[in-house]
Every structure is written in structure tokens, then in C-alpha cells.
């Protein structure tokens, strides 16, 4: 892989919880993202998985600077985004685009496809109105929509087609990185496959880097080069997709993989499933030490003391102090 295009260094995003009417005092902190370090190479697809509340969407929004970082830094092609002035940030953001989960909510119902897709072009002064028509037509073709639908509104399209419009919008400024936050979760199985193929094609043809956020591990494994597993705001395992999902090392990843229902009755009925007790704890008062220890089948007293760092193990990095002991 070449030099990283995106780097996160110990990024933390915390939200204060305030109470009181006149004198709002801070009564706690939600540690949504709590020390994430990772890098993304040019043309690489990184899958980010974890359950709801693990901080994966907050991390996506932090990368885009839609949320301020509490500490740590996000670097795009070596430039720290938080240090940039507004004008420069706007220019850099052209390289960093997002696709959201719900194509019903992320498109403005009052804007035609043309208006939606030409807006970024005109805002960033990429081209004038007459040229925009040609570029919009090209974008639509690229994502598999017929340009003759340019003057239609979002409600005239199906869910899968809307997600194509959202992807076209993200591509309009020819970004280097796309962050897709659960882009197929709201779609039917047969439509999911269409959108996954489209994303894979775009990565290949346009040399894009993709951060693919999802909770469906089989989908993530299919599209990603590398996978990062998040639990309560931290990465607990990161490495090559096939390795992490076919042979998970961290006890949480193991439970997550074992929880996926297999579409094969034979396998499904005979396998041992690791069923985790309880729900993920609250990020307001996370457990001490390794935040996974209250639900971990292999936890010992030492796990309550300190959060383990990510360390190389079996060809990937794992944040567990008991690796090899179970």
C-alpha cells in the first residue's frame, strides 16, 4: 500500500452532559470516540464494524469535521483538518465526502436530481450551469441511473435508486475518500448487492478510498480490504478482512462473528454460539480497564485495571491482554 491519505491520531470525541437551567453544570461526559488511531491508504477499503452506540457514526462525523475533536487529530494528505481555516477546510472537504444510511432522509425532497447533484459543483465553482448539465448526466450514468430522470424528485425513485443518487452526490466533486455510513442497511437483500457492486466498481475505477461502516459483518467482509472492530469508542481488533472475520482473535469479535445467523440449516443447528450476556454498557460510565470485561467470558482481575493497547497478534492488531491465554 502507498502512503496514507487519511490518518487519525488518538482521536477522541466526547460530549458533555449538562444539567440545570440557569447555571448549566457538566455532570458527565459521553465518551463516544475514545482514542482511535488508524490510517487509510489510497484506494483502500476499510470496514468499520460494531454495534449501535459503539461510536462508529460519531467517528465518521469526526473525520468529516462535522463534529469537533476533543483531542487528537485528523490528517488528510498530511494536513491537520482542525488547524485549517474555513476557506481551506472547504477546499479540503472536496476530497472527503459522505453517504448516509437512509436515502429517504438524506436527500432533500424538494430538490430534483439535477438540483441535488449540481449543488456541490456550483457551490465549489467547479463549473457553470451549462456545463453542470453535462457533468450531472455523466454522474448519473456512472452510478447506473438514466440521465433522462434528471428533473425527477426523490420520491419518484425506489430506495436503491435513491442511494445511487446519494452516491452520485458524493462523487460530484471527485473526492479521494468516501465515508459510507451503513449505506445498505435500509435496503432489501437483492438491492443491497447492487449497491455493493456499485461501490466496489467505483473504488476500482476511480481509485477511491472508502470507509465502509456497517453492522453486517458478511457485507463488510465482502467489500473491505481491512476491517476495524469498535467497542465503546475504541478499536479492539483491526487487520485484513479475511483474517479478522474468518479467524477472529478478540473475544468481542469472536462473539460478534458467532452471532451472525448462517444461511445454512446444517451449520446453523450444530454450531456452538457464543451468546454474550447483557447489553453494551453505557459510554457515560464505561467500565474500568478493558471496557469489555463485564461481558467477556475470558476476563480475569487484571482486565479491570487498564485498557489494553492494540498489539500485533496473529497477523493483525488486537487490544486484549489475554491473547493466547484462552
Amino acid at each position: 500500500m502507498s502512503e496514507p491519505i487519511l490518518e487519525l491520531r488518538d482521536v477522541r470525541t466526547h460530549f458533555p452532559i449538562r444539567q440545570g437551567f440557569f447555571f448549566k453544570r457538566q455532570v458527565g461526559t459521553v465518551k463516544a470516540v475514545d482514542g482511535v488511531t488508524l490510517s487509510l491508504a489510497r484506494g483502500e477499503v476499510l470496514g468499520l464494524v460494531g454495534e449501535s452506540g459503539c461510536g462508529k457514526s460519531t467517528l465518521a462525523r469526526t473525520i468529516l469535521q462535522l463534529l469537533p475533536t476533543t483531542s487528537g487529530s485528523v490528517l488528510l494528505s498530511g494536513r491537520t483538518l482542525a488547524d485549517c481555516e474555513a476557506g481551506e477546510l472547504m477546499r479540503l472537504r472536496r476530497d472527503l465526502q459522505m453517504v448516509f444510511q437512509d436515502p429517504y432522509a438524506s436527500l432533500n425532497p424538494r430538490m430534483t436530481v439535477f438540483a441535488t447533484l449540481s449543488e456541490p459543483l456550483l457551490t465549489h465553482g467547479v463549473c457553470d450551469r451549462s456545463e453542470a448539465t453535462r457533468q450531472v448526466a455523466e454522474l448519473m450514468e456512472r452510478v447506473g441511473l438514466a440521465p433522462r430522470f434528471m428533473q425527477k424528485y426523490p420520491h419518484e425513485f425506489s430506495g436503491g435508486q435513491r442511494q445511487r443518487i446519494a452516491i452520485a452526490r458524493a462523487l460530484a466533486l471527485r473526492p479521494q475518500i468516501i465515508i459510507a455510513d451503513e449505506p445498505v442497511s435500509a435496503l432489501d437483500v437483492s438491492i443491497q448487492a447492487q449497491i455493493l457492486n456499485l461501490l466496489a466498481k467505483l473504488v476500482r475505477e476511480m481509485g477511491l478510498s472508502l470507509v465502509f461502516i456497517a453492522h453486517d459483518l458478511s457485507v463488510v467482509k465482502h467489500i473491505s480490504d481491512r476491517v476495524a472492530v469498535m467497542y465503546l469508542g475504541r478499536i479492539v481488533e483491526i487487520g485484513e478482512a479475511r483474517r479478522v472475520i474468518d479467524d477472529p482473535q478478540h473475544p468481542y469479535t469472536r462473539a460478534l462473528v458467532s452471532a451472525i445467523p448462517r444461511p445454512d440449516p446444517e451449520v446453523e443447528r450444530n454450531r456452538q454460539r457464543i451468546v454474550l450476556p447483557g447489553d453494551p454498557p453505557s459510554p457515560i460510565n464505561p467500565p474500568s480497564g478493558c471496557t469489555f470485561h463485564p461481558r467477556c467470558p475470558h476476563a480475569v482481575d487484571a482486565c479491570k485495571a487498564a485498557f489494553p493497547e492494540l498489539r500485533p497478534a496473529a497477523g493483525r492488531e488486537v487490544a486484549c491482554s489475554r491473547i493466547g491465554a484462552f
Binding site: 448487492a193 447492487q194 457492486n197 458478511s218 465482502h222 451472525i260 444461511p263
Partner: peptide
């Protein structure tokens, strides 16, 4: 069209 039943990296059946 189930992703987990298809080899990785190959274009998914749709």
C-alpha cells in the same frame, strides 16, 4: 445474492 455465500471480492450476484 447473500454476500456470505459468495467468494470475497467477486462481483456479487444481483
Amino acid at each position: 445474492s447473500i454476500p456470505s455465500l459468495q467468494p470475497k471480492g467477486v462481483e456479487l450476484f444481483t
